[in-house]
């Protein structure tokens, strides 16, 4: 059977993101809309001084880098800039699959402070998928120049995730960002992000489908968020089944096998 480490879904992911070494370090994902200064944040965090142009789609080769804080090393993966995770484009698919299946320890979402509304749309979607989310409120100097003042406390209390204001090109806020990543990783900060509540017509259907999923494939509960999966199936996402096959089943064949026996056991009960 070809389920050696070469063919496993994890390896596909590792290969796609060029994560060949250093897998022992906690993996930090860097997500965000295009043109939010995400690449600059990446450079500032890792000390890589790559050139970053000002045009959408410049992060075509997923970059990875390392940074250390208080003796702990982290691996940082730069995801393609996207407006959403609904998998309408290859870039969105890559970003979604990484957050969903590579299970990063922390996901930093870089946000353009001058355009909070559009950026929060992505933040809400990421918080639906994973818990350890940190908001990097970038370009606050530009926002100030445009007369935009953001109530960080309020934003934090609404989203229930840490919000760190930064001016990445000047290096401002980068240490605070590292410190927060460190403390989330060590468990000192526990994040329970706000999960969006949809309109009743959506929520009712989700709950219904979620229950069915639990009944039918309940043994997978620890590996995928059923609420999220139900939403994807309901909105007619065609890519999720393909991604499940690509990363998930190949990745955990043994877990599914043991899970299956668990289902049988519960069936007996």
């Amino acid at each position: 059977m070809g389920l050696t480490s070469q063919s496993s879904g994890l390896n596909v992911l590792k290969k796609e993101f060029n994560l060949t070494s250093g897998y022992n370090n906690p993996v930090i994902a860097l997500a965000g809309n295009p043109n939010t200064g995400k690449s600059t944040v990446f450079n500032e965090l890792t000390g890589l001084k790559q050139h970053t142009g000002n045009w959408p789609g410049k992060t075509v080769i997923q970059a990875k880098g390392y940074f250390s804080h208080q003796g702990q090393q982290f691996m940082l993966v730069d995801l393609p800039g996207t407006y959403s995770l609904l998998a309408n484009s290859t870039e969105e698919l890559i970003a979604r699959d990484f957050i969903c299946f590579a299970d990063p320890t922390v996901t930093i979402v870089v946000v353009d402070s001058t355009n909070l509304e559009r950026n929060l749309n992505l933040v809400l979607q990421i918080m639906e998928l994973t818990d350890n989310v940190i908001l990097c409120l970038n370009l606050i100097d530009e926002a100030k120049r445009k007369g935009i003042e953001i109530n960080i406390e309020h934003l934090q209390s609404e989203l229930k995730i840490p919000v760190i204001p930064t001016i990445a090109r000047d290096g401002y806020g980068i240490t605070a960002l590292k410190e927060t990543v460190f403390r989330v990783n060590s468990g000192e900060i526990k994040i329970k992000p706000y999960k969006i509540k949809y309109s009743p017509e959506v929520e009712n259907k989700v709950i219904e489908l979620e229950e069915t999923l639990e009944k039918r494939i309940g043994h997978l509960k620890n590996f995928i968020n059923f609420h999220w999966l139900a939403l994807r199936l309901l909105e007619g996402d065609q890519t999720i089944l393909y991604s499940l096959e690509k990363y998930f089943v190949d990745y955990f064949p043994s877990k599914i096998l043991s899970g299956e026996s668990g289902v049988q056991a519960s069936g007996v009960r």
Partner: peptide, 20 residues
Amino acid sequence: QIVTDLYTKAETIAAQSILS
């Protein structure tokens, strides 16, 4: 509905968090 709800919520939070 899902996309609308997401954008509406984002809009609300943004509006409340922006002081001026």
